[in-house]
Amino acid sequence: MSLDNLPTLSETVKIHKLRANKTLGQHFLLDMNVTDKIARLAAPLDGVSVAEIGPGPGGLTRALVQNGAEVLAIEMDDRFLAPLDDIARASGKLRVIHGNALKVDIGKELDGEIKIVANLPYNVGTKMLINWLTATPLFWSQAVLMFQKEVAERVVASPGDSAYGRLAILAQSVCDTRLGFEVPSNAFSPPPKVDSAVIVLEPLPEAKRFRDLKLLGEVTMAAFGQRRKMLRKSLKPIAKKYGVESESWCETCNIDPQRRPETLSVAEFQILAGALKNE
């Protein structure tokens, strides 16, 4: 059997009587033009190990193996194991772990160059991204991920953008980020209430990555917790925690304490965090 002889995705869904589980954030991506486009964003894939999270009936999985990837698919819903097994037997390039991706150490499961390519479940996508950004060591060379459009915009946002905040600063302290393309809701079955978008993350050289993401996360959480207030006000709680005064802390970093958090660059937030660490 080859992939070309498998039932179409729509036929697969009918054969196995599959329905999306809303509690798991499932929406089936059945448009092969979109799945192929995602796989091409991750190219080249020949000889590359790819981790795919929540493959569902396997649309993106098919595109990845057709483009040469050796795929590890992590799926917690046992309804999808049979159609995924069909892909595994037809391609010889797929291994499936039945379990919770949050509990799988991808870096230990795969060898060689590792990429993460996934249409992430809406309800845990952000948590997974933070886990991958903070992995030590950083085991992946590229991530091509689909999120709700609003979340994707938060990852790639620049200072001054309405979506700019903690997630952009954490992601861009580890990676170059860019928006790949947007995906309308009608590409899914059933269609979600919002559009989606695919983003590409490529790790910065190790020397350019900010190492203490936990502390940076604390600083950004304080700052954007009161994003309409000036830094001298919004940073007071964390300044007190670390035994400093918010205005003098900002001034030591050559940052005007009257600025608002959305105006600071990623580098300026790193300077603030670095100064706290040295206190």
Rank of each mutant, 00 (worst) to 15 (best):
K229S: 02
L45S: 00
K115W: 00
P44D: 10
A143S: 00
M1H: 10
L102K: 15
A20P: 04
L24V: 02
R232S: 07
N67Y: 06
E150D: 11
L45A: 02
A88M: 09
A82T: 15
G59Q: 02
P190S: 06
L94M: 05
L18G: 04
T35M: 08
T220E: 01
A143D: 00
L3D: 06
Q226N: 12
F210C: 07
D86I: 05
V198F: 03
G125C: 07
P237E: 00
A152I: 12
D256Q: 10
Y164T: 10
Y122G: 06
Y164C: 11
F181L: 11
A73K: 03
K22S: 13
N100M: 13
A39C: 09
I97N: 01
I15M: 13
L215Q: 06
V144A: 01
V219R: 00
M1T: 09
K149T: 06
A20T: 05
F210M: 09
F147V: 04
A101H: 03
R227I: 12
V13L: 15
V174F: 06
I116R: 00
V151T: 14
V48G: 00
T220W: 01
S246M: 03
E113T: 15
L64G: 03
T177L: 08
A101K: 01
L167Y: 04
K127V: 06
P55N: 10
L24I: 01
V266M: 09
F210L: 08
E262K: 13
K108N: 15
L138G: 00
I271A: 12
K17A: 13
P137W: 08
K149S: 09
T136K: 14
T220Q: 01
K149M: 08
G125Y: 04
D111C: 11
K240L: 09
F269Q: 05
P159T: 10
G243C: 07
A42T: 02
L213E: 03
K193T: 06
Y122S: 08
D256F: 02
A118V: 08
M146P: 04
Q26M: 15
